[in-house]
Every structure is written in structure tokens, then in C-alpha cells.
Design a binder for these strands. Structure first.
Lengths: 212, 212, 212, 212
DNA sequence: CATGAATGAGCGTTCATTCAT
DNA sequence: TATGAATGAACGCTCATTCAT
């Protein structure tokens, strides 16, 4: 669940592996600063200040800025892909599952937009940022593609659609709609608005634009 | 002294205010460097070197880095939105026009991927980058939304779909599929592959996923 | 609170004020780390790790980094100057005593090169490092100068030679020859090689280069 | 002569390869700061300030601190080894040449002690600092060893002495005597004192300590 | 127009030192 | 004693921007 590349997971006990409170604070603060200012605009000093923590402590818990932000991304992506996996493994038709994905993401957006905005930042020059991020992205696409495949084999979805391309398109549509809300191009201030946008986005993704 | 604004080539008029060759070289080089390295990775020195131009000359033609890159974005977006406008104003059904959009973008991608990758970079922290870029993005969405609206009034497209949301979703899907090709997640090496991906993406966008 | 000074083992007295085992471990580790990496390359964390001791404990026994390394130097220099004093006070001609100095140092070098390398580090910007080190260095030169003086009064050595300068020259020659071995410029891998180098160095120091 | 790893030597012309004045100023200032404070105590800001130059300019001419100080060392060593080579190739007995070496170094010390002090700093943890420095040191020893060899073949010097060891010992003696003057252990304030010390050091090096 | 040397603010990182337990 | 988390000053390096020629 929690990333913790470092900081020793206790093998045996349950209550031992407690993540240091300040480490969590740093990670938490980093999500917001990162979401607000992006990779380069996000300064270590900002994160430390937002976490109410001394500058140097960031480097006590993370080797450097890259590792810190990679942990942030990994954590948020883990939450997202775990949700995708749970939805995929759950009951319901493929259409229900796709609607469920939108439901999950838009819900999180309502309460913790930074978490979503961080996901949107993943895409960066050089394709995706070094290392694990690309795989994570690939994994997310794969999980959605699995749902599509399942729907096709059940006769619910278009059999001709390439699952990977369909999944990518679907996620991209969702992403830009969210981005549109983030920048105010698509109305998403009130909860009701967000819900309406979500329903529209789901309808377009599943039903397509063509009348019929 | 001389504002760089005056260097804009006069669109309609006589060929008097010819854009200096080196200014063009800088802009051209900037597209590639920007596409390759992103906003922060793109250094003025890189651009100057790629343009085979002296360092200081960049500052002769552009007030600063932001203005340079804004020009780059504006230019590429202008090409794109002009194409959208032309397609929208042209003949054919709404579906044809949407397919035409994909056709245009994927064609450009085949010959000048940097031009497309620059568009993909537009989305950045702080919503969209300063100034005109946001409007440009809004304009592109608006043009696609117009096509959707037209299709709805002609009875070709789903009347319940919100044109703006539909347009955003459509562009987002296209964008992420392109990104997928850029990073190699979606196969797009050969021309045939690119064409196949394009067709798939169009089908999903227009026809949706639901079996019909 | 507790000044680390009190940790010095009582030289003459009863065995009451036993030096804590961990203090010794730190000092021991510091010799090696210091010898390997020099003053600035030697981090407190390195010493603590090498001593298998907690970070903070170093600061329990030593006020700060400077004091720690001063203790290291003082200890190694004490060993050296004690040997010089013993040799000086012992029997034999001045030439024998000088040979004895080389014998002692080269022997230590064979079994504990770090101890010697630490001595070689003493010389540092700002003349010699703060505090006692300079005096220690002065004392070593003085002890050798005493041997020279003694030899002169016995009619064994050149009466015109300035004892201090001669002593300094002699130690400098020895030092650089050792440095040469440390860096591999002078062969000093096997015991036999080291012995040969020692003999050569002694001969040059005592007999000079001039044929006769 | 001048190092200039970078900054393009003009192949043809003579007056073209002018070293930029500010580059020289930086190098010059670096000699002094480096000599005063040593490698780690020498901050780029100090050098820039001493050179009356903007901080960033140091990085215009040198890739980083290491390269700057390597250039400093290389330059000073080049001066020294060139002198050694000239002395070695010149006329006179081996003893004259050795005396000439001392003469050169002590003369420089009188007018530009920093130049000598920088040479003394070369010896550093890890044997000698990275790269070229070790070779330079080796070259200096080699040049002196050549003089020794020549003297031996002419029947002027002890035939049994190992030239490399003798050369190392000789340079080491000279070095520590200089160090002694630098730190005030050996009197070297007035010119007369310096000359006296030099004569003593030469006598000890050539004649040895044994009464003959 | 064109050049590239010169400037300096900004930021990532290190590491000696302190402190609560 | 002993631990290691917490602190923050210091410094190397980058790079956008300016300026003299």
C-alpha cells in the first residue's frame, strides 16, 4: 500500500512498522505543493515549510527531490491503480465498471483535488518520468484494458475495439475533462456540477457521440 | 528598444515586413528542444545552439524565455486551430469532420512529431501556462464543440451530449493515445501502425465502447 | 555538562578512570576514516558507522569534529614523539638514533599504515591545524633536533648544520618517501621493499648525496 | 606553458590566443585563496570576490571547482617542473643543480609564497588528487632523479643511492623546511634568513649529516 | 543585427550540531 | 550512557538575463 522504499518494514510485528509522522507530513505536503506548482516549481523549501518541518528533514527521509516526488507519484498512482484493480475484480457489467472508474476519480477530485492533479502531472517531457512511473502508467492502462477485454468477451462491448487503445482513449478523455475543470474551462465548482460533468463524460466514453 | 512584436510576419499585407531568417531558425529550433526537454529542461543555450545562432540573438528577437516559448506554442496551436476551423467550416458530416481532425493530427505526427509533442506540453502546472495559451486551448475546444453542436442540430450526434465536455473528452482521448505512441505504450512506429491506431481512436470516440 | 576532557585515561595513576570502550572504538575508527578521506572527507557519520556506534555518541565523547580529530592527531603524534624521546634518550650514536627513527616509523607503517598516514595529514592549510597540533609538530622537530645537537657535541655530526633545519629536512624527507609509498610512486608493497626503501632513505639522510 | 585545457588555442597566429583577462584574474586569485585556505576552505565566492569578478564568471571559464583548482595546481606545477627541467638540462655539477633547485624555489617563495604554498597543498587524502596531479608529481620526482642519475654517472654522487628515493627525500626535505617557514617554526621572515635557511637545507641534502 | 562575456539570484544538497527520549 | 530524529547554515552549480562591443 504505502510506498516506503526505504525505512525498513518490520517483518514480523504489525504495530512496529509505524511510518514516522513527519515523513508522512512531508509526503502529504509534497502532494499539494507538487500539484500546485509542478515538478520544477516545487521547491524543497516549500515542501518543508508546508509540512512544518525543518529543511534538512526532507533529506533525512528522502534521498533527493526526485525520490521525494517519485514517492508522491507512486503513492497516488498506487491508490488509483488499486482502485482500478478493485473495480475490475468486482461485480457488474463492463459499463458499470467504467462508470465506477469515473465515479472513483471524480469523488476523489471533489475531496482531494490535489491527489488528482498530481496524477495529471505524471505526463512530462521525455514521455513519462524516469523509472517506475512509466510502468505505473502502463499498469493503469492495462487494468482498464482488462475491463474492456472482459466486456468484449461477455458481448457487452464492441468486439473490434483494440482494448489498449480504447483504454488509453478513455483515460485520456477523463483526464482532459478533469483538467478542464481544474482550469475552469469546464464547470466543476459545486458538487452537483462535478456530478453532471462525470455523467456526461461517462456517456460519451461508453456510448460514443454517434446518435443511435 | 525594438519590441519583438513587430517581427510578426504581416499575415495579409505586402511582403515588406519579412520575418528575419534567424528569428525563424530560433523558433524552429525551439519547437524541437521544447518538445524534447519540456519547459524547464529547455535552456536558451540549447535553443541557440540548435538554431546555429548566437546566444544573445535569442534575446534580440524575444523578450525572454517565456515569450519565446509562448510564441512556439502559439504558432503550433495556430496551425492546429486553423486546421480545426477549416475542417469545421468544410463539407461533410460531423463524424467525417471528427475523423478529419484525427486524420490531420496523426498525419502531422507522422512527419513532424515535435509539433504534436509541443501541443501535448501545453498542459502544465498552474492550469495552463501564462497568458494566451489558455485562450488558445479554449478556442480549440470551442471549435470542436462547434462541430459537435452542428452534428447535433443536424441530427447526426447524440443530442444530450454537452458539446464542450464531449469535445474535451474527444481531444483528451486523442491526446493520450498520441502520448501513448510517443512513449511507446501504443505501437506507432510504422506509418501503417499509426493509421491503424488512428482508426481505432476515431471509432472509439465516435462510436463509443458499447456494443451497438 | 560532562567535559570530554575527563575521559582521558589517567596516565600514571590507578586504573580507576577507565576509558570507555566505545570512546576507544570511536577514536580507533576515526584514525582510519581520517587517514582514508582526510579532514573534510571524514564525516562524523562515517566515523560512527565504522565504530559501530550511534551517531550521537560521538558528540557525547567529543565536543565536536575538530576536537575528535585533534584527539586522533594528538594520540598518534604522542606515540610518535614518545618513540622519538625514547630513542633520543637511549644508547647509541646519533646516526644509530636517526636510523632508529626511520626503523620505528617504517615498522609502524608496515603494520598500521593509517597511523602514519594520519601524521602525514597534519600539514594542512593555515599552517598546521588549530591548537595543540602545531606544538606537537614543533615538539617532534625539537626532539630530533636534540639528537642532532647531541651528535654534534659528540663530534659525530656536522657541526655547522642548524639542528632545527636539519631535523626538519630529515623528517620531511622521511615523510615524502612514505607518501611516495602510500601513493605507489615508491615501491613499498612487500616487507622487503619497505626495508630497502628505509635503508636508502636513512643513507641519504645521514650520508648525503655527495660522493665521499 | 599556460594550461588552458579549454579556450581554444589559435593554431596559426601568435597574437590571437590571448587568454581572457578575467580568466587570468580568476586563476590568479585562486592561487592565493587556495594557498590560504586549502581546497575545502576555498570557496568559489572567495575566489570571485578576490578576482573582482562576478560569481558566475568562474563557471564561465571553469567547469567546476575541481577543474579550477586543478588548473591552479597544473599551472604552478608546470612552472616548477619547467624550472626543474631547465636546471637539469643546464650546465654545472649535480650539486650545483640541486642547489639551483633550492635557489629557484626559495626565490619564488620570497616573492610569491602562495605559489609555493599551493605546491605544498598538492599532497592530500587519497594520495594525490585526481588525475593529472599525480603524474605531475611523478614528473617532478623524475626530473630530480635524472639529475641524481647524471651526477652518479659523472662520479659526483653516491653511486649506491636509489635516484628516485633520493629525489623524493630531497624534495621532501625542501618541502618541510618550507612548510616550517610558512608556519614560523623555521625563521624565514627576512630575505637574509630565507637565504640562510636555503643554504643550510642544501648542505644537509647534499652533504648529509655525518661528519666528513 | 549579431556576439558572447558578464552578472547574480535561486535552488538542491550536505553535514556538523543539537535535542528529546 | 546511548540513540537517531531534527535543525539550518553553508556552499556548489545553473541559467535566465543584461550589456558592451
Amino acid at each position: 500500500m504505502t510506498s516506503s522504499r526505504q525505512h525498513h518494514a518490520a517483518p514480523g510485528g504489525a504495530s512496529d512498522d509505524i511510518e514516522p509522522e513527519k515523513r508522512r507530513a512531508i509526503l502529504h505536503a509534497a502532494v499539494h505543493v507538487f500539484a500546485d506548482k509542478g515538478y520544477h516549481g516545487c521547491r524543497i523549501a516549500d515542501v518543508a515549510r508546508a509540512a512544518h518541518v525543518a529543511y534538512g528533514l526532507v533529506y533525512h527521509y528522502f534521498r533527493n527531490k526526485d525520490e521525494l516526488l517519485e514517492n508522491v507519484l507512486a503513492e497516488q498512482w498506487a491508490i488509483f491503480t488499486n482502485a482500478l484493480a478493485a473495480i475490475g475484480a468486482g461485480p457488474g457489467s463492463a459499463a458499470d465498471k467504467i462508470a465506477g472508474i469515473f465515479g472513483f476519480v471524480f469523488d476523489v477530485y471533489k475531496t482531494a483535488p490535489s491527489a488528482i492533479r498530481v496524477l495529471l502531472l505524471t505526463r512530462t517531457p521525455q514521455g513519462l518520468r524516469a523509472g517506475s512511473t512509466r510502468e505505473t502508467f502502463e499498469r493503469a492502462v492495462g487494468l482498464v484494458a482488462d475491463i474492456v477485454r472482459q466486456g468484449q468477451s461477455r458481448g457487452e462491448l464492441q468486439p473490434e475495439a483494440d482494448p489498449t487503445i480504447a483504454a488509453t482513449s478513455l483515460l485520456g478523455g477523463m483526464e482532459l475533462v478533469l483538467s478542464g475543470m481544474v482550469i475552469g474551462l469546464v464547470p466543476g465548482t459545486s458538487e452537483a456540477e462535478v456530478d453532471r460533468v462525470r455523467r456526461q463524460a461517462v456517456d460519451v466514453a461508453i456510448g460514443g457521440l454517434r446518435k443511435g
